[in-house]
């Protein structure tokens, strides 16, 4: 059981939750994730740790309401408890001074990107961060990113904030201007696919942090498997970060949709029950 000590809505559907989890707060590094479960009948879902405070013994999760479990988490209040939190899982991001690093975050993917940006900056890199989302209200952690980046470029699909255009436009602006040694991209699979295609064009080594469907998160089940460079890999124990140019994003997209029908049905049912309760 992990108690919620702080909660803040960034927008209608994006929420930040700070949880008591002292051991995880102490052990976690940038790139790690946790698996959570809400209620005895809940499912297990992976969430990247967005931040942690070792002194206070807390970890920060940022989620977008997309289905039953994320909605259940968003509905919990300060003082409530998350039934199960386990981690930190996966490999931490490899951090060193690479030179100039181009970090690109799409939508709620900005949250898992944040600790990586912070760690890269601390290691002495020149960090240029591109934040992209559909519209202004979905751009999160902008101040935190600015505090830890040499430059932040904001892109929105509808032009409601920053520049109008896709994440790749912002990335190309930087690539055309200066030498980029490494790129890190995190966001929806489709965004990572096109971001990876962009950096591949310029031959820039790129890592993507993948958020697939998982059950145990410790290598036991293989639900999270993807194809990287023609080989099957488990995101939970081999990842979550992989060479973005080697990842089969189409397969990943397809696997992410494996339970679409059930998920939609379950979410509709949940929303109906939630309404009746209110």
């Amino acid at each position: 059981m992990s108690k919620i000590v702080e909660k803040e809505f960034f927008s209608k559907n994006v929420v930040k939750v700070v949880l008591e989890a002292p051991e995880i707060a102490k052990a976690r590094k940038a790139g790690h994730f946790v698996i959570i479960r809400i209620g005895e009948k809940g499912e297990r879902i992976p969430l990247t740790i967005a931040d942690a405070d070792e002194q206070k013994g807390t970890i920060t999760l940022i989620v977008q309401k997309v289905g039953v479990t994320s909605a259940k988490l968003a509905a919990l209040n300060v003082g409530d408890e998350v039934t199960d939190v386990v981690g930190p899982l996966g490999h931490a991001t490899h951090i060193e001074n690479f030179g100039t690093v181009l970090c690109a975050g799409g939508g709620v993917g900005i949250a898992p990107l944040y600790p990586i940006v912070k760690a890269l900056k601390n290691a002495g890199n020149r960090v240029i961060t591109v934040l992209a989302a559909r519209s202004k209200d979905l751009i999160i952690l902008e101040d935190e990113m600015r505090a830890n980046s040499d430059e932040v470029i904001v892109m929105t699909d509808d032009g409601s904030y920053g520049k109008q255009g896709l994440v790749t436009a912002g990335m190309e602006e930087v690539i055309n201007r200066e030498k980029v040694h490494l790129s890190v991209v995190i966001g929806p699979a489709i965004m990572m696919k096109f971001a990876a295609l962009t950096t591949k064009k310029y031959n820039i080594k790129t890592f993507a942090s993948l958020n697939t469907i998982m059950v145990d998160g410790t290598g036991m089940c293989g639900a999270c498997r993807i194809t990287v460079g023609g080989k099957t890999k488990f995101v939970c124990v081999d990842g979550p970060e992989f060479d973005a140019h080697e990842v089969d994003f189409d397969l990943m997209l397809s696997r992410l949709g494996a339970y679409r029908e059930q998920e939609v049905k379950a979410y509709e049912k949940y929303l109906k029950t939630a309404e009746t309760v209110q």
Partner: peptide
């Protein structure tokens, strides 16, 4: 082998 609907027995 990575198509949807194909599981390990563990999963």
């Amino acid at each position: 082998e990575n198509y949807n609907g194909i599981f390990s027995s563990n999963e």
